[in-house]
């Protein structure tokens, strides 16, 4: 489904990603962990199409298409969804109106008729229930004045509505208390299916207690330096990142 080959990216002349390789098959959940500043959020942003990042090498194939050639909105229409670490407040645009526009723009891209208002509303209500999102939030301006937990829940709610093939969760657990974390994780889990994949970017193992990954990768200094199963996350939780840093630095000395 997603194939990242030797991906390099920089921002303002500074190289952040230094050759990422990653294969994701349908139905798989991959966790990307790593210390602060290792490039985790950059990877998520580059995949979603944030234009500030310059791709300086490598390529990404998504469902047979050259992902890096598509605009952010085309990537979304192809089935990529980024749950933001810091969801943006947009005054004056209600969540419901925003989502209706998004759903119908994606349908248009895929050659489908727009959803009529009644069907859209019915669908949205069902999805809101899935993440225990209060209907009243839907009528409010997008994320405006929402608490941290409400914003993250809104991200997962949008994901449920848009039903992406590949969801990228960028530090969705940051700033959440344990109850909010559970609700968000339940929402993500309910969307798991043999066709849908996810990349879960996180600093802590905590989220992975709820969203159990198939693979765990450690990103450090812009490269994936270690991959393993879900047990790798437990090891990191116990031992921290220092032993990995030491391994990488020892290797660098040897080279």
């Amino acid at each position: 489904m997603l194939s990242i080959n030797g991906l390099r990216a920089s921002i303002e002349g500074k190289e952040i990603l230094k050759g990422i390789n990653l294969e994701i098959k349908p139905g798989e959940v991959h966790a990307i962990m790593g210390p602060n500043g290792s490039g985790k959020s950059t990877l998520a942003s580059v995949l979603a199409g944030r234009e500030e990042y310059e791709v300086t090498g490598g390529n990404v194939i998504f469902d047979g298409k050259e992902l890096l050639e598509l605009a952010a909105e085309e990537r979304a229409a192809e089935g990529i969804f980024l749950a933001f670490q810091y969801p943006v407040e947009i005054p004056g645009v209600t969540t419901i109106n925003f989502l209706k526009t998004a759903v119908n723009e994606i349908r248009k891209y895929n050659g489908q008729e727009p959803l009529d208002a009644a069907r859209f509303l019915k669908m949205v209500r069902e999805k809101a229930k899935l993440v225990s999102m209060n209907d009243s939030l839907l009528k409010r301006a997008l994320n405006e004045g929402f608490s941290g937990g409400e914003k993250k829940r809104n991200e997962i709610f949008q994901m449920a509505v848009l039903e992406p093939k590949l969801a990228i969760l960028d530090e969705t657990d940051s700033g959440l208390d344990i109850d909010a974390l559970r609700i968000v994780a339940e929402g993500v889990n309910s969307l798991r299916s043999p066709e849908r994949s996810a990349i879960v970017v996180t600093h802590y193992q905590r989220l992975l207690d709820y969203i159990v990954p198939d693979f765990v990768h450690v990103l450090y200094k812009g490269r994936i330096v270690k991959s393993g199963g879900k047990e790798l996350a437990f090891e990191l939780e116990e031992k921290g990142y220092d032993w990995i840093k030491a391994e990488v630095e020892a290797e660098e000395v040897n080279q």
């Binding site: 952010a72 909105e73 969801p87």
Partner: peptide, 9 residues
């Protein structure tokens, strides 16, 4: 960017 990432042109 937030809006575009949701498929809105």
């Amino acid at each position: 960017f937030y809006m575009r990432s949701r498929g809105i042109s």
